Computed example of a mutant assay.
Amino acid sequence: MWYCQALSQCPSDPHGPIARPTASESHRQPSLSAGTHPAIRALSSLNESLIINRLGQQSDRKPYAKLRKRPQSLVNQAGLRLPDASLEELDRNAQRGINLGQLDALAPCTWIQHGEQVAIIGAPGRGKTWLACAIGRAACLKGFRVRYYPMRVLLNELAKDAESRHAGALRTELLRQDLLIIDEFDPKGLSDQQYLWLLEVIDDRQARRSTLAASLKTPKEWAERVPDNQYAHMLVDRLSKTRCVFHLQGESRRIPPATENDPQEPAARPDL
């Protein structure tokens, strides 16, 4: 104990004890008072205002930059076959058979929030893929995650996922997508394993995430084309429960090839 008392008696500063500020002095803020030159006071206030304005500009700029960047990044990540398709450029001719009331109801994308499904039916060249991509792009611009797959490509990816070391990773990734677009959907002629893979993907999304199927056949014809397979019937039953079905009609939207009598290529239509 003797060395503790000795240390306590020794001053920490050889020149004497350190003077500690009083409570009133510690709370005293430095200020540019009357003793400061007016030019210095004006310069200080100017710098302070400039700093505040610059910080305000940066805080206002960053969120809007993120909002502008995010929709375009969602469009790029969606893998849309026609990423520039837009509902504003849709040919609304009555001969196409599109229910414009239903289409306008889909534009706010509330159906995606509710996990509902949509089907687009039509003969080849009637614009099924274009309309599906336009709906997908509209969803991206609303901030939803979208993924586009032709059915055969999706089956190939599911087969690779099943054989990989991280089996099931693709199903988890697909479940994260707010809208899954399956183009060229046709349940006929698949193997039992392929029916099961598709069923698992769709079953995961039931009432949780939205699915859009574009097909040559109607949901009623899907049920007629599948074999006597439990997985096949379950798959068709789940995809048939749609909010709305678009039946595209009219002439083919694809550009016809040039002929010898008419060598000039016709103008491309905006809605393929």
Rank of each mutant, 00 (worst) to 15 (best):
Met1Gly: 12
Cys4Phe: 14
Gln5Glu: 15
Ile18His: 08
Ala19Ile: 15
Pro21His: 00
Ala23His: 01
Arg28Tyr: 11
Gln29Ala: 15
Gln29Leu: 15
Gln29Arg: 12
Ser31Met: 13
Leu32Gly: 11
Ala39Thr: 11
Ile40His: 11
Leu43Thr: 05
Leu50Lys: 01
Ile51Val: 11
Ile52Gln: 15
Gly56Tyr: 05
Asp60Glu: 14
Lys62Phe: 01
Lys62Pro: 00
Ala65Ser: 14
Ala65Tyr: 02
Ala65Asp: 11
Leu67Pro: 00
Arg70Trp: 10
Pro71Asn: 03
Ser73Cys: 04
Val75Met: 08
Asn76Ser: 14
Ala78Gln: 01
Ala78Asp: 03
Leu80Gly: 05
Leu82Tyr: 14
Ser86Glu: 14
Leu87Thr: 01
Leu87Phe: 06
Asp91Phe: 08
Leu100Lys: 09
Gly101Ile: 05
Asp104Arg: 15
Asp104His: 09
Asp104Cys: 03
Ala105Cys: 10
Leu106Met: 01
Leu106Asp: 12
Pro108Arg: 12
Cys109Lys: 05
Thr110Met: 07
Gly115Phe: 07
Gln117Phe: 12
Val118Phe: 08
Ala119Thr: 14
Gly122Met: 08
Ala123Thr: 09
Pro124Glu: 06
Leu131Val: 03
Ala134Gln: 11
Ile135Phe: 01
Gly136Arg: 04
Arg137Gly: 03
Arg137Asp: 01
Ala139Asn: 07
Cys140Gly: 03
Leu141Glu: 09
Lys142Thr: 13
Lys142Phe: 03
Gly143Trp: 07
Gly143Lys: 08
Arg147Ile: 14
Tyr148Arg: 00
Tyr148Thr: 00
Val153Ala: 15
Asn156Thr: 11
Glu157Trp: 10
Asp161Trp: 09
Asp161Glu: 06
Leu170Phe: 04
Arg171Ser: 13
Arg171Trp: 06
Arg171Lys: 12
Glu173Trp: 02
Gln177Ile: 03
Leu179Ser: 12
Ile181His: 02
Asp183Asn: 06
Glu184Asn: 08
Asp192Val: 02
Gln193Met: 08
Tyr195Arg: 05
Leu198Gln: 04
Leu198Tyr: 03
Leu199Met: 07
Glu200Asn: 11
Glu200Phe: 04
Val201Glu: 03
Asp204Cys: 13
Ser210Lys: 10
Thr211Asp: 11
Ala213Trp: 04
Leu216Asp: 10
Lys217Arg: 13
Thr218Ser: 15
Lys220Cys: 06
Lys220Asp: 09
Trp222Ser: 04
Arg225Gly: 11
Asn229Met: 06
Gln230Val: 15
Ala232Pro: 01
Met234Arg: 15
Met234Gln: 13
Leu235Met: 05
Val236Asn: 03
Asp237Thr: 13
Ser240Asn: 04
Lys241Met: 08
Thr242Leu: 08
Thr242Phe: 06
Leu248Asn: 07
Gln249Glu: 10
Gly250Gln: 03
Glu251Gln: 09
Pro256Cys: 13
Thr259Met: 01
Glu260Asn: 09
Gln264His: 10
Glu265Asp: 05
Ala267His: 02
Ala268Cys: 10
Pro270Ser: 03
Leu272Gly: 15
